[in-house]
């Protein structure tokens, strides 16, 4: 649990270069959900974290604003090497992959009007939207026995997608109420 944070101090220090390279790899492999690759590299390959620690970190980062994988990157870097580690991991995750992805994507966007590419993009967007919805449904499954949780998920969905309220209104309106009504009993929802 929280003592797991101290265990790492008995191991050899994680090098800044290793953080940079590990997250560079994660980002470049990151087709179809970078989280999968972060787990594979950080837990299975490098053995920097146990599965349990990783799950704890993930549950924290899923609630933080911004790109989830970026939060994980920053937290893992910070955990091993402080602020410099966070920067090294972040630089690995973003700088080169962003430049490569931006160049590639800008090229594709300039040809987006050709019928073939137009068709392909249409199909990719349709499938990717499905993956997003499925991810949401999967995350919702552990909460299926809590009517309040289902209700708040439904309110958030309807507010944003159907009524088309601004995100700020939805978040400010629902989050305080949802936290006030949540009970801390039972197993923590993951």
């Amino acid at each position: 649990m929280s003592s797991a944070l101290n265990e790492v101090e008995t191991r050899p220090p994680v090098m800044l270069g290793a953080l940079f390279l590990a997250f560079l790899k994660t980002s470049m492999y990151g087709f179809g959900g970078p989280i999968v690759w972060v787990r594979r590299i950080v837990v299975d390959e490098r053995r920097w974290l146990s599965d349990r620690d990783f799950a704890d970190l993930l549950s924290f980062c899923q609630f933080m604003p911004g790109p989830n994988v970026v939060s994980i990157t920053v937290c893992i870097g910070a955990k091993f090497r402080g602020p410099v580690g966070a920067l090294a991991a972040l630089a690995g995750f973003i700088v080169i992959p962003w430049a490569v992805g931006f160049g590639l994507g800008a090229l594709l966007l300039s040809y987006a009007q050709t019928p073939l590419l137009q068709g392909i993009l249409r199909g990719v967007a349709a499938a990717a939207a499905g993956l997003l919805i499925a991810t949401g449904i999967r995350l919702l499954l552990p909460h299926r026995h809590r009517p309040t949780a289902l209700a708040f998920a439904a309110f958030a969905f309807v507010g944003l997608a159907i009524v088309k309220l601004p995100l700020l209104i939805v978040v400010l309106g629902l989050v305080p109420l949802s936290i006030a009504l949540a009970r801390p009993d039972g197993t923590p929802a993951r």
Partner: peptide, 28 residues
């Protein structure tokens, strides 16, 4: 735990809304 349990359903609803809107974008 309360914060965790309270935030989770709202964030999940937002993710599903994102997928729903993108599924219907571009005159699908």
């Amino acid at each position: 735990q309360r914060v965790r349990r309270g935030l989770a359903p709202v964030t999940i609803g937002l993710v599903i809304a994102g997928g729903y809107v993108m599924a219907r974008a571009g005159d699908a």
